[in-house]
Nucleic acid binder design. Structure first.
Length: 657
RNA sequence: GCGCCCGUAGCUCAGUUGGAUAGAGCGUCGGACUACGAAUCCGAAGGUCGCAGGUUCGAGCCCUGCCGGGCGCGCCA
């Protein structure tokens, strides 16, 4: 609700600016800001400085003339000029508080945004289906899922895609491992029990060493890859079995973090349905793809494009006729943004507990009796976010350039590479994991996670460790808690710790992973946020118990405030209240800036203010009935905000902790 | 060589798109529980925002140049 007041004030100021100086909104747009310090007020503007030159007057004179005859909105209680040109506005705390109480009573503290008619696609996770997920993948999935939740909160309709590269070399490598190291085929692999993704993790690392041993070994990769792409043979069947089993492992892992998907587009179907041919025809028709006749790239189909004034070329089709990664990616992006005249077939892949179905792409129409489920219309998004690490920035730019070369400039504009830096390991952490580091690596600040070396922290191992640690803490604090509830609580805390950890750093920050940081539950962490929410809810519960009120009665008691005489809300209460009411602002700003860390930071500050508040004030024990209700209302408003905010970050609130 | 990103407290990071006295957490030191549960709170110490110029009423933020670090740039995927 704060954002509305801010917008309203901005309009009001803008009108006065036109009246007093003839400056229109188009000429100069007023930005209302939150002042640096609370004593300055609740809103502030600095336009007198900026307009001083144009209006040929001093900032003070402008501020004075502006304010002479300015009719402020009713809720503005005080207007000050300060610092030789700032104009600050303080609102009437009590009346704004009463507005908030009314909104709380009618359940409209944060009215929904206007729903967006279009569809936003978020593609994330995208793990090669050949081994267990690791911390790097967790950053991707958690960032992606939080983005999905933030978009939905902002009124967007979102489709979640998880692209499966089931025909790439990474899967081929594991196939080589099963065939030539384990001497196992489809039947044997299908019969393997236990942690399949963990088994492949080790096997994959062994295959890397196997390739290094001889040229003959290394050649096996190409042969296997060729058979996978050709399809309709035992090797391809094995690859499909491995990829499908691993994808199921990944979905299980992500499910532990409440991360879900709508559709899994598979590389094999892009191949079999010849998406590339359709895209290629478009590229040729538009002249975007050209057959190179001279030079080192002779015989290749290339795309030329301008980059910083220099011409660059990218190969789309090799001289042997095969398509490059970039080429396939352009075709796939065209499908996502609705400019490929082609679609997948779909089949249900699995259903979650609540009945939601994840669909997988398919090369053939589903048989009539297979299922009575009808897939939704996938793809063709109005806006597409590709959550992919920053190392792919160059490739992503080439893909978007491809769209532009096809004349789809709007579509390129609405395609976003949601880039983030990778998660690396501290050298100490890498050694802890049993990796033997070279002297060079030891000197470095961080070591890159490497699937090929088998070096990395597996997602499920990290989650297990988090849960174990959380369980110990829960048991110490709640010795009488039932084991199943303790387990559930530990799980919630582990999720909170991990999700907050991955989202608290800005996207551009490289995370150097260390167990000490990740397993920390104190200070700026997920459990801190959860704890404050739990405390707020329990204060509400205790309040009702203490005064013998039902939930509805306690809520109705708040109505008494509406008739009460005004009291002056102190700074700490006001700080907390306004921060809670800024939830929408924060969500909007975070989305606009495409920075989830900003929202995480906002929530953390909110929790901090609440912690400060409940340590300072007795709520249930407060003797003055008006203050008691004021405090109760503030606790309620805080809890409502925290509930929504934590939901955006996918962090659950335990019953107790 | 070309391109992108980063350099802020001992450590890890924020810094509302150019605003007011640069903020958190961890760590260190000191204080607050027979409880609306201390996974909390309060206080203290800790800064030449890599360096040097420039633009501006105003620069951690914009421009230029250096220094230091990371990543990317294949008929790989």
């Amino acid at each position: 609700m704060f954002y509305r007041i801010k917008d309203e004030l901005a309009d009001c100021l803008q009108a006065r600016l036109a009246e007093a100086f003839g400056v229109s909104r188009e000429q100069y747009r007023i930005q209302v800001q939150y002042p640096a310090r609370l004593e300055f007020g609740d809103f502030g503007v600095s336009f007198p400085f900026e307009l001083a030159k144009v209006l040929r007057r001093s900032p003070q004179q402008i501020a004075q003339q502006f304010l002479d005859g300015f009719r402020a909105p009713a809720y503005v209680r005080r207007i000050d000029t300060a610092g030789g040109g700032y104009i600050n506005f303080a609102v009437d705390r009590w009346s704004l508080f009463l507005d908030a109480v009314r909104a709380l009573r009618s359940g409209r503290l944060w009215p929904e945004f206007e729903p967006d008619a279009g569809k936003t696609i978020v593609e994330h996770t995208n793990i090669n289906p050949n081994k267990a997920a690791h911390i790097g993948h967790l950053r991707n999935a958690i960032l992606g899922d939080s983005l999905v939740r933030l978009l939905r909160f902002n009124g967007k309709r979102v489709e979640v895609q998880n692209y499966i590269d089931n025909t790439g070399v990474q899967v081929a490598d594991v196939v080589v491992g099963f065939l030539h190291l384990e001497h196992q085929g489809v039947a044997e692999v299908a019969a393997i029990e236990g942690r399949f993704d963990y088994l492949c993790w080790d096997l994959y690392a062994r295959v890397a060493r196997f390739y290094e041993a001889s040229e003959t070994n290394a050649r096996l990769r190409g042969e296997v890859l060729h058979q996978i792409e050709a399809g309709d043979n035992a090797v391809a069947e094995l690859a499909d079995l491995i990829a499908t089993r691993i994808v199921n492992c990944h979905l299980d892992t992500m499910e532990r973090l409440d991360i879900r998907y709508d559709v899994l587009p598979r590389e094999s179907d892009i191949l079999h349905l010849h998406f590339w041919d359709t895209a290629f025809a478009q590229l040729k028709a538009r002249g975007a793809a050209e057959l190179e006749t001279v030079g080192p790239n002779a015989g290749c189909w290339i795309m030329r494009y301008q980059k910083d004034g220099q011409e660059d070329t990218k190969i789309l089709v090799r001289s042997n006729g095969t398509v490059t990664y970039t080429g396939k990616d352009i075709a796939y992006q065209l499908w996502k943004i609705g400019r490929l005249d082609k679609d997948f077939h779909y089949e249900p892949f699995r259903a979650y507990d609540d009945g939601h179905t994840v669909w997988a792409s398919s090369s053939a129409p589903a048989t009539a009796d297979a299922s009575d489920l009808q897939p939704p219309r996938f793809g063709a998004g109005d806006r597409v976010f590709n959550v992919i690490d920053a190392r792919q920035a160059y490739t992503q730019n080439v893909v978007f350039e491809g769209l532009r070369r096809l004349g789809y400039t709007d579509e390129a504009e609405r395609s976003v590479h949601f880039a983030y830096e990778i998660v690396a390991l501290s050298p100490r952490c890498a050694q802890e994991l049993g990796s033997e580091l070279s002297d060079e690596d030891r000197q470095r600040a961080h070591v890159e996670v490497s699937g090929r070396k088998g070096l990395g922290v597996k997602a499920d191992d990290l989650l297990d460790r988090l849960e174990e640690k959380a369980r110990r803490e829960v048991d110490v604090r709640n010795p009488d808690m039932a084991p199943d509830q303790a387990a559930r609580t530990a799980r919630d805390i582990a999720i909170g710790a991990l999700r907050y950890f991955m989202v608290r750093y800005s996207r551009k920050a490289l995370i150097v992973f260390d167990f000490d940081d990740a397993l920390n539950f104190d200070g700026e962490t997920g459990p801190y946020l959860q704890y404050s929410a739990v405390r707020a809810r329990n204060i509400g519960v205790k309040y009702r118990e203490h005064y013998g009120l039902g939930e509805a009665e306690a809520a109705a008691a708040l109505d008494g405030l509406l008739a009460a005489a005004a009291v002056e809300l102190p700074d700490d209460v006001w700080d907390l209240l306004t921060q809670a009411l800024k939830l929408r602002d924060a969500a909007r700003a975070s989305l606009a800036g495409q920075e989830l860390a900003a929202f995480a930071k906002y929530l953390y500050t909110l929790a901090q203010r609440f912690s400060n508040f409940y340590n300072k004030h007795r709520i249930i024990g407060e003797e003055d009935p008006v203050w008691r209700l004021v405090f109760l209302a503030v606790v309620h408003i805080y809890y409502q905000g925290m509930q929504q905010g934590l939901d955006i970050l996918g962090i659950p609130i335990p019953e107790r902790m």
